[in-house]
C-alpha cells in the first residue's frame, strides 16, 4: 500500500491564458476513496482531466504508482474515468460498451466474454447485455459506464459527479453500490462532487477546493467537526458565521456582545448549535418550518438573520413574535478567516 499512489506536485492547469488550477499538491493513498468537493467552477473536472491525461498540465508533475506520467498519452495511463454524462457509445449494446476496452487488448473472445459478464454482474446488470444505452434508465446507464471502466482494472478510477443525474432514491442506492464496488475491488477512486452530504457519506478523505486551490483536506469527520475557514464551515452546514471584534460578534448589520472570550477571529454555529427558548439574546421570528425531527427558525436580530433548529417538543413561536436564544461557547466553532 502506497500512501502516495497518485501524486500531484505543483500542478498548474490552464485553458489558454486562464489559470484554472494554480499549483496543486495532493497525494492519494492506494485503495482509498477520495472526494474532490467544491463549488461549481473550482477546478474539480479540470483536475480529473489532468490526471486522466485529457489535459496537459502547464507545469508540475503527475505520478501514478511511482511512475511519472505527466507526458504519457491518455490511452496508456491505465486510468478509468466515469463521465458525468456517462459518454456511453450509443451504437453499441450494454455488453459491447463494457467489452469495448477489453477487445482493444487483443484478448481471446472467451475471456472478453467472461470478464464482461463478471463486470456487468458486479454492477447488478446481468441480463441487460443486449440493451442499447437509449433503452436504459439513467441509473442503469451509469452502471454500464462504471462497469466499462471497472473491467479494465484501472489503477485509478476517476468519477466526475457520477450521481448528479440521478433522482434522490437512485442516488442513495448508487452511493452504497459505489462503496461496495470499491471495497470489493480495492480500486483507488477519486470522486468529484459538489454535494457535501455525498462526500461525507462516501469518502475516506475529502479535498475541499476553492478557486483551484485546496481549502482543507481531511476525513469527513474532521471536516464536519472542525472546518478551518469560513468557506469550509459554510460548506459543512455552519449557517451562522460572524466576525469577532474584541468582546463582540460582528456582522454587516450590527453587533452583539458575546458572553465569553473568543480567541479566534471568527465563530460559527450550525442551526442545531443555537439554543432556542432561553438565553441572553432575543430575535424576532421571520420564518418557521417543520422539518420532521425539529423545527427550523429564522430569527432577525442585531446580527441580521440567525438560522436555528428547535426541538420539536417545544411550542411553536408564531411569526413576528420575539424569542430568546443563545449562541453558546460549547457549540461554537472557531475559524481562521
Amino acid at each position: 500500500m502506497s500512501d502516495k499512489y497518485v501524486r500531484l506536485s505543483d500542478l498548474t492547469l490552464s485553458y489558454g491564458k486562464t489559470v484554472a488550477v494554480p499549483n496543486l499538491n495532493l497525494d492519494v493513498v492506494e485503495g482509498e476513496l477520495i472526494a474532490l468537493l467544491g463549488p461549481s467552477g473550482c477546478g474539480k473536472t479540470t483536475t480529473m482531466r489532468a490526471i486522466a491525461g485529457l489535459l496537459t498540465p502547464t507545469s508540475g508533475a503527475i505520478e501514478i504508482d511511482g511512475r511519472d506520467v505527466t507526458r504519457l498519452a491518455a490511452n496508456k495511463r491505465g486510468i478509468g474515468l466515469v463521465f458525468q454524462s456517462y459518454a456511453l457509445f450509443p451504437h453499441l449494446s450494454a455488453f459491447e460498451n463494457v467489452a469495448f476496452g477489453l477487445r482493444l487488448k487483443n484478448m481471446a473472445d472467451a475471456e472478453v466474454r467472461s470478464r464482461t459478464e463478471a463486470g456487468m454482474a458486479t454492477v447488478g446488470l446481468a441480463g441487460f447485455e443486449a440493451r442499447k444505452p437509449a433503452e436504459m434508465s439513467g441509473g442503469q446507464q451509469q452502471r454500464v459506464a462504471l462497469a466499462r471502466s471497472l473491467v479494465m482494472e484501472p489503477k485509478v478510477l476517476l468519477l466526475d459527479e457520477p450521481l448528479s443525474n440521478l433522482d434522490a432514491r437512485l442516488r442513495l442506492e448508487m452511493r452504497t453500490e459505489l462503496q461496495r464496488v470499491q471495497k470489493d475491488t480495492g480500486v483507488t477512486m477519486v470522486f468529484v462532487t459538489h454535494d457535501q452530504s455525498e462526500a461525507l457519506a462516501l469518502a475516506d478523505r475529502i479535498v475541499l477546493m476553492k478557486d483551484g486551490k485546496i481549502e482543507q483536506l481531511g476525513t469527513p469527520s474532521q471536516l464536519y467537526a472542525e472546518p478551518a475557514t469560513a468557506f469550509a464551515a459554510e460548506f459543512m452546514g455552519f449557517e451562522n458565521i460572524f466576525r469577532v471584534e474584541g468582546e463582540n460578534l460582528v456582522s454587516n448589520s450590527g453587533q452583539l456582545r458575546l458572553g465569553f472570550a473568543a480567541s479566534s477571529s471568527m465563530l460559527a454555529w450550525r442551526p442545531g448549535g443555537v439554543h432556542v427558548g432561553q438565553g441572553p439574546f432575543s430575535g424576532r421570528v421571520v420564518a418557521s418550518s417543520f422539518a420532521g425531527g425539529h423545527r427550523e427558525y429564522v430569527f432577525d436580530c442585531q446580527l441580521g438573520e440567525i438560522k436555528a433548529d428547535a426541538p420539536i417538543e417545544t411550542a411553536e413561536v408564531p411569526l413576528g413574535q420575539s424569542i430568546a436564544f443563545d449562541l453558546p461557547q460549547s457549540t461554537a466553532r472557531p475559524l481562521l478567516a
Binding site: L54, N75, F83, M152
Partner: peptide
C-alpha cells in the same frame, strides 16, 4: 455527437484514429 464519447474511447485504450473509426464514424 458529444466529444466526451471519444475521450471515453481513448481512456479505454483507443488511439485518436481508432476512437474516430470505432466511435465517431458509426454514430
Amino acid at each position: 455527437l458529444r466529444a466526451d464519447m471519444e475521450e471515453a474511447a481513448v481512456l479505454l485504450g483507443c488511439t485518436r484514429m481508432q476512437a474516430f473509426m470505432k466511435v465517431v464514424l458509426p454514430n
